[in-house]
């Protein structure tokens, strides 16, 4: 089970990206993506931003964790799969399906996680963990909004979060 995590800034620019594998059930934490899949990951993350924008302003909810907003169905060849509908539905472990979960901060920074099995609660905790890390990064006076996060400590803490929750 592999995850692709990216933090996207207010101008749709990536601030931080990382790939993880799961630590549970004997996994060794290494992401196993096919090569084409890797390029597709970035595409999927960006294309989900459109849907995200719609959901962002829907209703008066205003919660930060938006759960799974999209399920992207890809074919085994990893070619041009179509984007399939909106979320919240079945916990489909379809072949090659990728779920997109999003967390949106108050300052409009998007944390996007691509994963192949759906698991709301651990992902929510992971997102809140990263949210805390991001806020601490922002407190640095030498870091401005929409700047890339290049800290090795940040990287280490995110991976620790993955180990803990995912």
């Amino acid at each position: 089970m592999s995850f692709y995590f990216v933090i996207i800034g207010t101008k749709d620019n990536p601030l931080y990206e990382a790939e993880f594998g799961t630590w549970k059930q004997g996994g060794d934490g290494v992401a196993r993506f096919r090569d084409e899949q890797r390029h597709l990951n970035q595409f999927i993350a960006h294309s989900s931003l459109d849907l995200l924008e719609e959901l962002q302003w829907a209703g008066t909810g205003g919660s930060m964790y938006l759960k799974c907003i999209e399920r992207f169905a890809g074919t085994a060849g990893g070619g041009s799969g179509g984007v399939v509908g909106v979320a919240g539905g079945v916990n489909g472990a379809g072949a090659g399906g990728v779920w997109v979960s999003v967390f949106l901060t108050a300052g409009n920074i998007k944390f996007v996680l691509l994963h192949d099995t759906r698991a709301d609660e651990p992902i929510r905790q992971f997102f809140y963990d990263v949210y805390e890390l991001y806020t601490k990064t922002l407190m640095n006076p030498f870091y401005s909004v929409d700047m890339e996060v290049r800290s090795a400590v940040f990287d280490g803490r995110v991976r620790a979060g993955v180990k803990k929750y995912l």
Binding site: Y16, E17, A18, E19, G29, V30, R150, S151, F154, R159
Partner: peptide, 16 residues
Amino acid sequence: SPTTSSHPSTPLAQKH
């Protein structure tokens, strides 16, 4: 914190 190369295409092998 020194810069790291977090390029997505390189496999990120971490000693866990």
